[in-house]
Design a protein around this nucleic acid. Structure first.
Lengths: 235, 235
DNA sequence: ACAAAAGTGTTTCGAATACACCCATGT
DNA sequence: ACATGGGTGTATTCGAAACACTTTTGT
């Protein structure tokens, strides 16, 4: 007995907006499609939802397919359902955004996706409505990062304050006084100062810090406003 | 030529979490299902997405079906896609939350939905995962209202400061000093003081205010934090 | 006259900001 | 010795919070 038999069924896709940070600038992981439609055009990584999996599972599967990574920060963003967004057949796309430590990214064996890290300032034209998704994701990461400590997900487990500040400055496209920055960020109580230094960036070296995971998970919901004058935030 | 022919298609629903405020408490508009499955159980208002409409259009249609209202505040919230969330057939639900002026609500002719306004403290058991949707919506309205002036959508076009304060106190389940409240809320510059008073609530009467629509739309994205200590916010 | 709700102002406190010098080290 | 980036403290400002009395009017 199928009570819903008169209803239309739809294709369902998941598309991932994958952020990474290389110490210089914020980047997205894009692929060059190796298949039709829109072969050889740039696109977000995505795939169809399978019969047996939830949306979250689909997103995790697709992320792993491309990056080899599991257990990364992944959050559902928005569902796109314009009737003509996919010219071949109507498809609803549930978009997810992911934050990964760019250094953990492993080129997958097949490299069948021709993935590339592209700085946000140089995103090429993308297929379908993927541009809109990227726009929304840029707004969302700013919005959320202004209030919650999510940007740590983009850094390796040990990082320095100058690195962290660079990251915030990239995301918000602003510059921050380093004295005030360190005060605010240390005042969260989320950071543990380590005893050794990163000598890569300077002669003197900068102390490594790591996240206090317990406090991180406990305080994640709390407002942690690190950005001065967080005005022009989207959404 | 259908390149996607091997993929599974899914039922797609839209479910609406509809908030209203009657001056006393925050309420949800729920329906008692008049059809199977789960006939006579409480549920959110929802419906299947049609072939010809976008997700937003579907949500607006469903909202209008129940309330008779158009042009109300309606925002996509989250998509629920657990494989077994609907026992009859797998259905993905895109949830929307709506804020409406409860006084504009018109019982629709058919009253085929047996709708009722239910205070948030007395939400009955709901079908499927609608409980989860309501929980998420409660978190979301707090979160967003702590930062943006969305609660005006719940009030009539003319309202008094005591009414507005009641609303904030209901949503955040707290009490606010009325002197500080009026300072903060007037400091936003979003309110226009009218010359006449609402004599219903008291002998002296309270001045009516209305939203400065232009400033409202212009400043919507800006942070407008009216709530003291907005800590325990979800999401 | 009094009860009930509306309206209003000042002081205090804490957080955010602006701002400048010394330190460590590789060259 | 010097150039480069790392690290730290204080004074000021501004906004948030605490707090109490007067006004109006229907009864």
């Amino acid at each position: 007995m199928n009570k819903y038999s008169k209803q239309t069924r739809f294709l369902l896709a998941v598309d991932c907006i994958i952020f990474g940070f290389d110490g210089e600038s914020l980047k997205l992981l894009l692929i060059k499609r190796g298949f039709n439609p829109e072969k050889d055009k740039w696109s977000l990584m995505g795939g169809f939802v399978q019969d047996s999996e939830s949306l979250d599972q689909a997103a995790n599967r697709i992320l792993k397919q491309l990056t080899g990574l599991e257990g990364v920060y992944l959050e559902q963003m928005y569902s796109f359902g314009e009737t003509t967004r996919d010219p071949i057949e109507r498809t609803i796309s549930v978009s997810y955004f992911a934050l990964i430590d760019i250094h953990k990214y492993e080129q997958q064996i097949s490299s069948e996706f021709h993935a590339e890290w592209v700085p946000l300032e140089r995103i090429p034209k993308l297929i379908f409505d993927h541009q809109d998704m990227v726009e929304m994701a840029r707004g969302r990461i700013k919005y959320k990062a202004a209030l919650h400590p999510i940007l740590f997900e983009l850094l390796p487990s040990r990082f320095t304050l100058p690195q962290l500040q660079n990251l915030y400055e990239s995301v918000f496209n602003t510059s921050i006084d380093k004295r005030n920055f360190s005060k605010r960020v240390l005042a969260t109580g989320l950071l543990i100062k380590l005893t050794d230094k990163d000598k890569a960036g300077s002669k003197r070296g900068a102390y490594y810090y790591q996240l206090d995971k317990d406090k991180y998970y406990a305080n994640f919901q709390a407002f942690v406003n690190i950005i001065p004058n967080p005005d022009s935030l989207q959404n």
